[in-house]
Design a protein around this nucleic acid. Structure first.
Lengths: 336, 336
DNA sequence: ATGAAAGCGCTAACAC
DNA sequence: GTGTTAGCGCTTTCAT
């Protein structure tokens, strides 16, 4: 048994044909005669040959691999989106690699990964990519392909697939209003985030539609993390005058927020109605079960990959594709 | 501006040296004269050259990239382990790619990825790898490097870094006993999983030590998912005689379990004490806050990468490295 | 210390 | 339909 991996040449020799023919038989079976194909396939079996993608990619300048950039692998919300991407990708014969954008230098390394033809491009679930990535990937001649999913970045011509965040936020507030609430506060996501802005805009829009005041002191700052929800809970408890309902920009913060209140004897929904955003898996099993806005996560993943593939192949794509959100009514919000 | 990425040759020309020298200046700065190095570096700047890893790896037969296999990206538990791997890896100049083992054909594709020199090897957080991967990666001459973290696979000579699952389980049960409990049940993880077995063994050991009976009907079957926790909750509610305490094999199931009971008017810890395993982020903010066994997740990630690097470089490694677990006492278990 | 030349394994262009 | 040739971009002997 040879020490090294067999190469096309070994197969060629075993099959009694040329290396080029082996390559053709494997990549374009139609371009080769029935008989040769069989000979080659048999030789492949015999030798235990596996194509060296490295060499293939170096030649073809394409890799059938794609990198997904996630702002926070810890947030379970993303896993379903990744699953969606994966299922579309595997149908197309693509390998999906996931990477967190937060580790120091992580984004940079990944970008090099793509720039080096080790992956065909990126799907970013993080709208705040380092400028270096944005500039070198924003499409165009010979540039790596980039697509945003969930989040996005205004101004650049980068295609994005997103949820209707503003509409979802309106749904949340409308629900609260329909329950008889009028004193409604909001816990924001991180500053400078497109989702934060869109959800806040939806909140304001719905409030305005009903002539409800948006009180400065009822707008709390968060950053989508559990801890920031806890912190917001503390601030809420100190409020001179408290709202009777809160629309929280995501589920994770809601858990921190509700639990902090619970620790101080304030119960949701008894003392405060809460609607959140995302509908991650635990939302249904939190106590109280969370009323929240659901986004079709698997679908968006699939759509993102489809968009990526189109863009990579040079087809024109819709620049913005928006998927609808729906409200899931459970226990955390009740009549005023 | 040229249409294509600059190559070593472009840099060589700009610097007035040969391609070989450029390569040397970049890879082994010491092997080149001060003056040339400066010239080359300047030329690199000018041309905007970035090394093409693909070509480099094809030549060097090493990639500085590693793939991490995760059984379930949705379980937040893994994200901290990945973070640990990432921090150790980035210090070593490695790129970390994560992949879910569940998508159809996913494992296979990933293995090809490695077999093709597109990554140096794998760290698997999944003990139940397809046989094809195990056999082609189980180390040895020219074989891709594989290391297990958290989970493992007995029999093969694959190095693994793990938590003291059995000890952690004992801690959990001891705690319950110290609270005065004697009627203690257990919710298992998935069948055929090493963690399931180890945690169950720890449970039995602690029970035996105190002369407590292990009742068949108090051993429920789960699979580490939220849903299986819900299902177990239903079964628990139907029990003719109920235990007064439960040790659940992970947090995720605990959420499903506790919430299902809550829906039926059975409250934790009022009516039932619960201790779980993992201490994922939400555990502290669940209602009730979960008493659970914590594992040093970041550390295990770092240790796993260190082990990987050693193994990849041909050094001998401890075959089994075990990290201690600690009990985090919160609200979900109280005196009998 | 540097350059010339060979070659990693594969595929695309061209000839037959 | 198949073989020959060249070359993807890099690194690494081997000379000098």
């Amino acid at each position: 048994m040879p020490n090294r991996q067999p190469t096309v040449r070994d197969v060629a020799q075993a099959a009694g044909v040329s290396a080029a023919t082996v390559s053709r038989a494997l990549s374009f079976p139609d371009k080769v005669s029935e008989a040769t194909r069989i000979k080659v396939l048999r030789a492949v079996e015999e030798t235990g040959y596996v194509v060296n993608q490295l060499a293939r990619n170096l030649r073809r300048r394409t890799t059938s691999a794609i990198v997904v950039l996630v702002p926070n692998l810890g947030n379970q919300f993303f896993s379903h989106i990744i699953a969606g991407i994966e299922s579309a990708a595997s149908r197309a014969g693509y390998t999906v690699l996931v990477s967190d954008t937060r580790p120091p230098g992580g984004g940079e390394m990944l970008m090099d990964f793509v720039r080096n033809n080790r992956a065909d491009g990126l799907i970013s679930l993080d709208g705040n990519l380092p400028g270096s990535i944005l500039s070198s990937a924003s499409g165009g001649r010979g540039r790596p392909t980039l697509v945003f999913a969930c989040e996005w970045h205004d101004g650049l011509g980068v295609p994005s697939v997103r949820f209707d965040n503003e509409g979802g936020a309106e749904l949340a507030v409308e629900h609260l209003v329909s329950l008889g609430h009028s004193r409604i506060g909001h816990l924001l996501g991180p500053p400078g985030n497109v989702l934060t802005d869109a959800r806040f805009a939806g909140y304001r829009r719905a409030m305005a539609r009903h002539g409800l005041p948006v009180r400065e002191d009822w707008i709390l700052q968060g950053d989508f993390t559990l801890d920031s929800g806890v912190q917001a809970g503390r601030e809420w408890l100190e409020l001179a005058e408290r709202p009777r309902a809160m629309f929280l920009a995501n589920d994770e913060m809601a858990f921190g927020f509700i639990s902090e209140l619970h620790g101080k004897g304030v119960e949701v929904p008894r003392d405060l109605s809460v609607v959140a955003f995302d509908d991650i898996d635990i939302a249904e099993r939190y106590i109280p079960a969370l009323t929240t806005v659901r986004q079709p996560r698997h679908e968006i993943g699939e759509a993102a990959f489809a968009t990526f593939l189109k863009a990579f192949n040079g087809a024109t794509t819709e620049l913005i594709r928006t998927l609808p959100a729906t409200l899931i009514v459970r226990d955390s919000a009740r009549p005023a």
